[in-house]
């Protein structure tokens, strides 16, 4: 691949990389900075050959996945270097260590009254409250439509970890959207049902 084509291809994914950076940093200024470093690395001398070797070596994903992998690594390297991130409570107590896809089924309810228009604003708040590793996986899954395998390759984690994080992120969102009876009523969701699930299990 010649340099012009490589650059053109990389720049085609600038919006996706920027969105990923915003999702990780939650700050447009920092996202801007992160994106510049990602592209500075992507355009370093010799990377075209490396990129091609990577594709020839059967690694999952194309240019976008490659840029996402750089974004992921630059972001988490910065966090590591900063050494100032407090340990989240659930991580401290070992919740994060349970990287298994939980056996809990998705919620079930009568969808006929669900108004997704109203859901969106609540969902946005709920996503904003998520930790970056959940937002990151949701972004690749929900916006970019990547497969588990691609996300796992980008994050350099086992596919089970991706499934687990996705499950947990979705569960947090569903709980926030549906768990509060008042909010559920406001959203037009009826019949939600932890109780139903419990009944099912006991049955």
């Amino acid at each position: 691949m010649d340099r012009d084509r490589f650059e053109k291809l990389a720049l085609e994914h600038l919006d996706a990389v920027y969105r990923m950076a915003v999702s990780l940093t939650r700050d447009p200024g920092e996202a801007d900075d992160l994106v510049q470093e990602v592209y500075a690395r992507a355009f370093r001398p010799g990377t075209i050959e490396r990129f091609e070797d990577r594709a020839d070596g059967g690694e999952v994903g194309g240019m976008r996945s490659w840029l996402f992998a750089i974004t992921h690594n630059v972001f988490y390297t910065r966090i590591k270097k900063a050494k100032r991130r407090p340990t989240p409570v659930d991580e401290f107590f070992g919740e994060e260590g349970r990287e298994r896809a939980p056996d809990e089924p998705p919620p079930v309810f009568d969808r006929s009254g669900l108004d997704w228009e109203q859901v969106d604003s609540r969902l946005k708040d709920a996503i904003d409250d998520l930790r970056e590793e959940y937002r990151e996986v949701l972004m690749m899954w929900g916006v970019d439509g990547l497969k588990y395998r691609e996300i796992a390759a980008i994050m350099d984690v086992p596919i089970g970890t991706v499934m687990s994080r996705l499950h947990r992120a979705r569960k947090i969102l569903a709980d926030k959207l549906l768990g509060d009876p008042d909010a559920a009523g406001e959203l037009g969701v009826t019949g939600i049902t932890r109780r139903m699930e419990e009944k099912e299990r006991t049955a």
Partner: peptide
């Protein structure tokens, strides 16, 4: 169906702005 709609909603909500 709920999971699919949730995914679509996450996509809508997170798509955000393009690069300045």
């Amino acid at each position: 169906q709920f999971e699919r709609e949730l995914r679509e909603a996450v996509g809508r909500v997170m798509v955000g702005a393009n690069a300045p």
